[in-house]
Simulated scan of single mutants.
Amino acid sequence: MNSSSLDAQQQLLHALYESHAADLERFVTRLTGDHKQAEDIIQEALFRAWQRPEVLARPEAAVRAWLFTVARNLVVDHWRSARNRHEIGTDQPPEESQTDATDRVLDSWLISEALSVLSAEHRQILLHGYYRSLSVREISAELGIPEGTVKSRMHYALRAMKLALQERGVTQ
């Protein structure tokens, strides 16, 4: 498209805006109840008219009918969109969700109960290894027992703990 026909098309579009924008705005605002959305829809309708020069070449009444039809379809499309159905605008952000500590409390109660049925040696090894996160060498030094004994007790303590938890209904 050359420069002169583009200028002519823009002048025609400007005249179209001047002729129909006010009526379109009242029409779309009545459909949407939102002045800002109405402006956006009018702009989109006029943009679509600008993209289709054959529409601008029609008689004035046909162009007006086309613009109102496009505007109405844009409103309908907006109402049908997933964004409109699933998003709710608000001035206040939602409250931060609070996690329910019930599961954590019940789990700790269950583990505490299972630990209570273990032998003192096994309970001591598990508490040092898992709750205090000590290494085998550190546990060995603190309890004054060989590292091999720490490993052996840890192995049997975990087996006993697994059995104690299974007896309380905990499955893997």
Rank of each mutant, 00 (worst) to 15 (best):
S3C: 02
S4V: 09
S5K: 03
L6H: 09
L6I: 11
Q9I: 07
Q11L: 08
Q11K: 15
L13F: 00
A15E: 14
A15W: 01
A15Q: 11
L16F: 13
E18D: 12
A21C: 11
E25Q: 12
V28H: 01
V28E: 01
R30E: 13
R30I: 08
L31Y: 14
T32C: 06
D34P: 08
H35T: 07
K36S: 09
E39R: 07
I42H: 06
E44D: 12
E44F: 00
A45H: 08
L46H: 09
F47P: 06
Q51F: 04
R52K: 11
P53V: 14
V55Q: 13
A57T: 05
A57P: 10
P59R: 11
E60H: 05
V63G: 04
A65K: 12
A65V: 14
W66C: 13
W66L: 12
L67N: 13
V70D: 10
A71W: 03
N73V: 05
N73E: 11
L74T: 04
V76N: 13
H78R: 11
H78M: 03
W79Y: 05
S81R: 10
S81P: 02
R83E: 14
R83G: 03
R83K: 02
R85A: 15
H86A: 08
G89T: 04
Q92H: 07
Q92E: 14
P93R: 15
P94C: 07
P94N: 14
E95F: 05
E95P: 00
E96S: 08
S97K: 06
T99H: 10
D100C: 02
A101W: 01
A101Q: 03
T102L: 10
T102I: 09
T102R: 07
D103H: 01
D103P: 06
R104S: 05
V105I: 15
L106R: 13
W109Y: 08
W109V: 03
L110K: 08
S112I: 00
S112A: 03
S112G: 08
L115T: 09
S116G: 03
L118P: 08
L118G: 05
H128I: 04
Y130F: 10
Y131M: 10
R132T: 02
S135L: 10
V136I: 11
V136D: 05
S140V: 09
E142R: 12
E142P: 01
G144H: 14
G144A: 07
I145S: 13
I145M: 14
V150Q: 11
K151S: 14
S152P: 09
R153M: 11
M154Q: 12
M154I: 02
K162D: 01
A164Q: 12
L165M: 15
E167F: 01
R168Y: 00
V170F: 13
T171D: 04
Q172E: 14
